[in-house]
Amino acid sequence: MTTPLVEMRDICISFGGVHAVDHVSVDLHPGEVVGLLGHNGAGKSTLIKILSGAYQADSGEILINGEKVEIHNPRDARSHQIETIYQTLALADNLDAASNLFLGRELVTPFGLVDDDAMEAETRKIMARLNPNFQKFSEPVSALSGGQRQSVAIARAVYFNARILIMDEPTAALGPHETQMVAELIQQLKADGIGIFLISHDIHDVMELCDRASVMKNGKLVGVVDVDDVTDDDLLGMIILGKKPEGVDC
């Protein structure tokens, strides 16, 4: 077995006595998509926010390529090439697409000033690849449609050569056409050897896009299964009842 790209071991975090994540371990290999499934409040978003640096675990450890790392904030996560597409998209609505794409990592001129023209040019390039219909480069992202906003958030994660990509409900706000676009993108990123954590509560999505699925319930890990080994009903049983399917190695 190769060394996993990411290994989260025995992670715990609690908020005011509630064990949001309770001794959970998950891992992710290069070129693999691992689904994180569970009800609202199962702890999947919280778990992943520990990896992206938004929260800090009370205990447990994170290994990247087998080496133990400390992730104290989103900057640390980014320095390990962990990029996140948040469910809320985390866009500053008053800024344009380029400003959002480069937020926190602006391109600067030799004088140290923000180089808006260069950033817009780069944004145009990546958008031509991700969403060729995208044209609103000078307007604030509040003026964009849901799908366009999503493509800005995706572009931000993809542009900086992520090795590990976290996608929190990437298709929740999208129409069928855009969902298809995200599915194609995931295949493309997989082929590039990027590891993806996909948070979803759409079982159909997970069965189609993921290689493995980790199911959580009430902050605990129910099990990790190969999606080829289970049916939709098996996954549903894990999500709703916290029951491991029989005869499957979890």
């Binding site: 938004a54 500053a92 609505d93 926190g104």
Partner: peptide
């Protein structure tokens, strides 16, 4: 400054 004003959470998550 403007990003934080537009969306403080987004600014925080962008490592600001």
């Amino acid at each position: 400054i403007f990003a934080t004003g537009g969306n403080p959470d987004a600014a925080e998550l962008s490592g600001i």
